[in-house]
Design a protein around this nucleic acid. Structure first.
Lengths: 187, 187
DNA sequence: AGATATGCGTCAACATGGTTGACATAAAAA
DNA sequence: TTTTTATGTCAACCATGTTGACGCATATCT
């Protein structure tokens, strides 16, 4: 009964280390979403709206299907918030030129404005954390989180995403966005 | 129009860097919770139950008030899940010995069991990410997330939490758990 | 050309887990 | 003795997730 959980016990240290890793993620996410949530509440919206606005802003011209793939929710669930955002003119749809079934999503001016306000706090929070840590720490943050996300989404972070406003004028999917084979190969 | 957003534009790089930081957190959290969620669903429970089980397991003898402070939800909301967990014998309450108003929360054997199953996947996921990265990367992960969480909860990660099963036999709060002044100073 | 698959939308019902507000009891602290 | 704290409870409401069933337009396959 000497010192089972102080030193000399790598199993315990590892367990403790892993648990801290879990909790850091919980607390960070909790605090990360708190501010935008309260801003949204004033506009009668919720976190779900934020996510949609964010990713549409991030990927202009994104299709509904791809957005669903990112959010991993059902289309019925998305439909509710997306419908509101379109009605309230934060987002607009444009018919795809190549595939006319697609509704390509874009932020309106109003949407861009709101997106900016919403993420301002989050960007500041990250910037502060980055600044307080070293460049190597930032790199470590990225590496570890990267290792935690499922493979399919990892490629999004390969290189700084180039503009993906392909607007479906060409069948070339945005780099790293659409992970599927290009359409139209006539066998 | 040369190369506004490739090199030579630190503003853009910074923006891109911050956005990636935001998204990494979103994707990681999304994937991190997916598995336990689906396990819970089979037991007719949800993510809220997991959080309660997790933190009660992590802080045996925690009070309801302190648990609320961690989760940052209302007592009515907690009451629902906590009530279920007690009814289903995953958690038990013991009256505080010093302050007899307190209901100190503990996992039962069944609760410990479930907690272990639930976090197994999360621990594995973190372990995998840690292993894939370097020790310095892990340190960076911790540093950056630490910088993102609000000050009041940061102290929890000061040192590996020592056993805090004080069981309120002494008024000394568990180290790093209760961040308030000790009770009982008579003027 | 005809069959099949895909992208998107919609209606309806339901579950989970948040919220607010009001009120009650026991015990500790002032 | 009075006030504050820790906990619990009832009730109503809201946001956001789910499943299942359909429908239409358009693309793709055979």
């Amino acid at each position: 009964m000497v010192d089972i959980k102080t030193r000399a016990n790598p199993l315990f240290l590892r367990e403790e280390e892993l648990r801290q890793g879990i909790e850091l993620l919980f607390y960070a996410y909790r605090d990360f979403t708190a501010e935008p949530d309260s801003m949204l509440a004033r506009l009668d919206m919720g976190r779900a709206h934020h996510r949609v606005i964010y990713f549409v802003g991030r990927h202009p011209g994104i299709t509904v299907t791809e957005l669903l793939r990112i959010l991993k929710i059902t289309k019925q669930s998305l439909s509710r918030v997306l419908g509101q955002l379109i009605r309230d003119a934060y987002i607009e749809q444009r018919q795809g030129k190549v595939d006319r079934r697609q509704r390509l999503l874009h932020l309106t001016e109003k949407g861009v404005q709101l997106e900016h306000e919403l993420t301002a706090n989050q960007r500041a929070r990250i910037a502060k954390a980055y600044k307080a840590a070293s460049a190597e720490a930032v790199d470590g943050y990225r590496k570890v989180l990267m290792g935690m996300i499922d493979e399919e989404d990892r490629r999004r972070f390969a290189r700084p995403n180039r503009e993906e406003e392909a607007e479906a004028t060409s069948p070339t999917p945005a780099p790293g966005l659409l992970s599927r084979r290009p359409v139209m190969r006539r066998s």
